[in-house]
């Protein structure tokens, strides 16, 4: 048995080294993100299940139709949330650039791109804070749902329950991502990575940050579009 294996050209699996050519921390980050995907997946699937089990559901376009500094009767569905989406995509792009700069050992580029990413994250969080605040003043909160179903019938509180729980959990991830990025920025500024000779930590932080963006793609679709 053992004699018939490992006929692969590079012998990646024969031991003594990583079969994936990655160091353990990055691999661990990948598998952590996979398990986190199941956390979010379970949330979103629970949301879907409840929606399938309920007669009628509010129309998101009637709920999320305002934006900051808008008048009372503003009717601009999808506008504000698309801005939030773009903020997150752009911050993901700057993160990629930071990671690439790290691979080329360009400290200044790392610093600039990390700062941009942090600003993007903070901007997203502020947008979310505004939206939560706005909904709260419309009477929506955990256990309270002022909105009607799309067909005009009464709606259950599960609409707001799931909205606040899942966007809140995502916001918590964004928040911790921002914290991680700030730590990365401090470590870069104090030359920790220069001394270490590599910026592998930033790659891991980058993976986490992209995952946050990835989750938003799903949350955005499930709550605002469908």
């Amino acid at each position: 048995m053992s004699t018939t294996t490992t006929a692969v050209p590079e012998k990646l699996w024969s031991g003594g080294k990583s079969p994936f050519k990655v160091e353990y921390g990055k691999l661990m980050m990948w598998y952590f993100l996979m398990s986190d995907a199941f956390t979010f997946g379970a949330f979103l699937i629970a949301y879907g299940t409840t929606r399938f089990a309920t007669n009628g559901w509010p129309n998101p376009n009637e709920v999320f139709k305002s934006y900051p500094f808008a008048s009372e009767n503003a009717n601009a569905p999808l506008v504000f949330v698309s801005i939030m989406t773009f903020i997150l995509i752009i911050s993901s792009v700057t993160m990629v650039l930071a990671v690439q700069a790290g691979q080329q050992m360009k400290k200044n580029a790392v610093v600039i791109n990390l700062i941009l990413t942090i600003i993007g994250g903070a901007a997203f969080l502020s947008c979310q804070a505004w939206e939560w605040n706005h909904l709260f003043h419309e009477g929506a909160w955990w256990g309270r749902n002022p909105f009607l179903n799309a067909d005009g019938t009464a709606s259950t509180t599960n609409f707001t329950n799931f909205f606040f729980t899942i966007t809140g959990f995502h916001g918590f991830h964004v928040f911790s991502g921002v914290i991680i990025n700030i730590i990365m920025l401090i470590m870069t500024l104090t030359d920790t990575f220069e001394k270490r000779g590599h910026y592998l930590m930033i790659e891991k932080a980058g993976l986490y940050w992209h995952f946050v963006d990835l989750v938003w793609v799903f949350v955005f679709t499930c709550f605002y579009l469908i």
Partner: peptide
């Protein structure tokens, strides 16, 4: 999701088994 995972998270350029 494919583009984010594949390119931003660089998965497309990893070893196939990963």
């Amino acid at each position: 999701a494919f583009y984010i995972v594949g390119y931003f998270m660089h998965l497309k350029h990893e070893v196939k088994n990963l």
